[in-house]
Design a protein around this nucleic acid. Structure first.
Length: 728
DNA sequence: AGCACGCCGACT
DNA sequence: GTCGGCGTGCTC
């Protein structure tokens, strides 16, 4: 055992062999190695005695970083992801690693600054703080209750706390020193409100889930918004902590809000729980990663990237809102964190819970085949289900995208002092601008997309590449001044509503209105502070927020997804409608949902009315089976893009020709086709679909095909294999 | 990905 | 005569 096989952050799908020399190295450790003219950080994957490489070429490991090694299950997961998603092992390994560890110069922060307040000066300090400086009082309070406060703990109190502490250190009030980050937090008592009463449904589900403890046992926990899934997660986590095990709780990107964090921090001690997401500064991410790796963090609450978090005592994985598309990474290592979580749980032999109100058809199918235990929470403690009403827009007059029943419903809410939400998944004023005289349509010069008219800045904007141009005064082709905006965007809807309800306080929430940092938080405060009567917004409003006074949700124009070429469009639409419907009537006020549609008899809308997801899911699954779509087949997509259309096509043609000779077994290759968005930012995009009813057959094909694609040495073409693509 | 080597055009 | 363009090839 004198050779270490090391993964390096280079796009070459192999491990590199190094002599260990006098070092002591274990798999999972980070090492610094010479690589060509460079020095790189690598991850030791294996130790061996022999190397296939010419021994004269082997070089020595330079140093071993003093960090907790990646546990074996993470190494194994990385290896799986690299093969399954056709991504070089090094790239797969390093996507999950916080940036500071990638630099050879990095000295990991083994010591952390902590602050303490001598009892003798406490009262004197309190006197100097103005009474209304609540934050400062809270800091002093925390300092006098704990022997010392680390920088990170202070930050939990408030982002401004560390600065305040530094100021007090300078003026001599408090003391700071460097302490080892080894505080033992596992023995901290659990908060006692853990024993909340559960409904019969919840108690049943919990009992069932408890049976899976200690072995691989995947479960689908199906329950609508407010049915108490989170409470079950809490209970499971508490039990895992009591057994001395760590829990990984994954949530979609938009759901990991400060509110959710606060909710968990209220339940679990700050030092016991770390959150992990891509918006953290790299130093902070590194610190929290180490807290997970050392086993100090009992709970890791994170987005998709946390599926790779090193957790030596991991005993439970929970994936909340498992159907959410943000669990699939759309670049580099194109992994599905939900699927990798299943692999990780299986290899580790631990239970995993997938939670959702509207499970993905993949998961639903697995539950039906009894691969997953299927648990349902039907009741909704503390609130009634919203009543869903369909409004047939073919038989009712529409004005500015709104029907009279919707206007009437808003009117009632205004009278009762309740809030309404109008949901429209389209930003801007009008999605299309046309010339009334010659039929000219505003299109983006760099994308195959229409330009959207944004009223406020009087610009036409491309929602794909961000290109902007001023709204022309006259038609660029015929000079006619009759330019019209067709269709409804959130801006126009806001205007229409202001016309109908001049005294109502209307707030529009979409990416445009919340672009500046902090405005979103401010808006949330306004909504909660009762300063808003009518909300107009896109899917930003659909997720993760409870507005107690909101009793009406109106869905303005959802039909578009029904004509979509994407076979997943209706699944996504239903998930979205369920989610936004769940915003209505959460507290003790009953909620109402109005859906404007031309197809009120469509099964999708009928399922929304009856809140019967399983029936719809079964129907959609039957359609998928008949059409030969996932989950009944496995798919992989070769995505390619280049500036010139012919370059892309030529590449895909060559790739197809290469592939045709390699096909074995039940694998089907389709002809290259342009992507749905055939051009974005001046680059042409097209793809080649591979399909098989047998996942292993498709995997075998990809494994021989990808090396051949690399050999094609396609200049000027960017390409990637997307296994289990979510969008075609 | 980086970083070198290598072989052809316009510059002090 | 050299500086520099990016094509090609290699990295344990």
């Amino acid at each position: 055992v004198s050779i270490a096989r090391v993964a390096l952050d280079v796009p070459i799908d192999t491990l590199f062999d190094y002599r260990i020399g006098a070092h002591t190295v274990r798999p999972g450790q980070l090492v610094v190695v010479p690589f060509g003219k460079r020095r790189l950080v690598g991850i030791v994957f294996e130790l061996t005695a022999e190397s296939q490489v010419d021994n004269a070429r082997l070089r020595f490991i330079q140093s071993v970083l003093p960090l907790d090694p990646l546990p074996a299950d993470v190494l194994s997961l990385i290896q799986f992801a690299s093969t399954y998603y056709r991504c070089p092992i090094g790239e797969a390994a390093f996507t999950s690693l916080p940036a500071p560890f990638r630099q050879p110069r990095y000295a990991p922060a083994e010591k952390q600054k902590s602050y303490s307040l001598p009892q003798s000066v406490r009262d004197a300090l309190l006197e100097t703080i103005p009474r209304r400086a609540i934050l400062l009082h809270r800091i002093v309070d925390a300092l006098s209750r704990a022997p010392a406060l680390t920088r990170e703990e202070a930050r939990q109190l408030s982002p401004r706390a560390p600065a305040a502490l530094e100021k007090w250190v300078k003026s001599g009030w408090i003391e700071s020193r460097l302490t080892e980050v080894t505080e033992q937090v596992l023995d901290l008592p659990l908060q006692e409100d853990a024993k909340l009463s559960l409904t019969a449904d919840q108690a049943n589900a919990l009992a069932e889930l408890e049976q899976g403890c200690g072995k691989y046992s995947p479960s689908l926990l199906e329950g609508i918004t407010g049915s108490g899934k989170t409470e079950i997660y809490f209970q499971l986590i508490v039990r895992a902590l009591e057994r001395g095990q760590q829990t990984l709780l994954m949530v979609p990107e938009i759901n990991l809000t400060p509110q959710l964090e606060a909710r968990f921090h209220a339940r679990f001690d700050a030092r016991r729980l770390v959150t992990l997401h891509s918006n953290l500064s790299s130093g902070e991410r590194a610190r929290r990663w180490m807290a997970a790796a050392s086993g100090r963090a009992g709970v890791v609450l994170g987005t998709r990237l946390s599926v790779f978090a090193p957790m030596p005592r991991l005993g439970l994985i929970i994936v909340d809102e498992e159907h959410d598309a943000s669990f699939k990474q759309q670049e580099g290592l194109r992994y599905s964190a939900r699927d990798l979580a299943l692999v990780r749980a299986q290899r580790l032999g631990i239970p995993i819970v997938l939670g959702s109100a509207t499970p993905s058809l993949e998961t639903f199918h697995n539950a039906q085949k009894k691969k997953f235990r299927h648990l349902r929470l039907s009741s909704r403690p503390g609130a009634k289900l919203p009543k869903v009403r369909l409004i047939d827009t073919q038989s009712i007059a529409m004005a500015g995208g709104l029907s009279e029943p919707v206007l009437e419903a808003i009117r009632q809410r205004l009278q009762r002092g309740e809030q309404s939400l109008i949901f429209l998944n389209r930003r801007g004023f009008a999605p299309v601008v046309v010339c009334g005289a010659c039929g000219w349509v505003g299109e983006c010069g760099r994308c195959s997309a229409r330009l959207v008219w944004h009223l406020k800045d009087a610009v036409l904007r491309c929602h794909y590449c961000g290109h902007e141009q001023r709204l022309p005064l006259a038609c660029p082709t015929c000079g006619d001044q009759d330019l019209q905006g067709l269709g409804q965007g959130t801006q126009r809807l806001e205007q229409t509503l202001a016309g109908h309800f001049p005294s109502a306080r209307i707030l529009r929430i979409d990416r445009d209105s919340t672009r500046r940092k902090g405005t979103w938080d401010g808006m949330l405060k306004e909504i909660h502070g009762d300063a808003v009567d009518i909300l107009v917004g896109t899917q930003m409003l659909a997720k993760g927020h409870d507005f107690p006074k909101l009793t009406l949700v109106a869905i303005a124009n959802p039909d578009g997804a029904l004509y979509s070429a994407d076979f997943r469009a209706s699944e996504k639409l239903f998930q979205q409608l369920m989610q936004v419907s769940g915003r209505a009537g959460r507290a003790h006020l009953p909620g109402e949902v109005l859906v404007q549609t031309r197809f009120p008899t469509h099964p999708l809308y009928q399922a929304l009315v009856s809140q019967n997801f399983p029936e719809l899911a079964e129907q959609m699954l039957a359609e998928r089976q008949q059409a030969g779509f996932p989950p009944f087949v496995a798919q992989a997509l070769l995505r390619a893009e280049a500036v010139s259309e012919s370059t892309v096509n030529a590449f895909l043609k060559r790739a197809a020709k290469e592939g045709a000779t390699l096909i074995e077994g039940d694998v089907t290759m389709y002809d290259p086709v342009p992507a749905t968005m055939a051009r974005i930012a001046g680059r042409h995009r097209a793809h080649l679909l591979m399909q098989s009813p047998l996942r292993p057959a498709l995997q075998r094909f990809l494994q021989v095909w990808t090396p051949k694609l690399e050999q094609l040495k396609a200049r000027n073409v960017r390409w990637i294999i997307d296994v289990d693509p979510l969008e075609l």
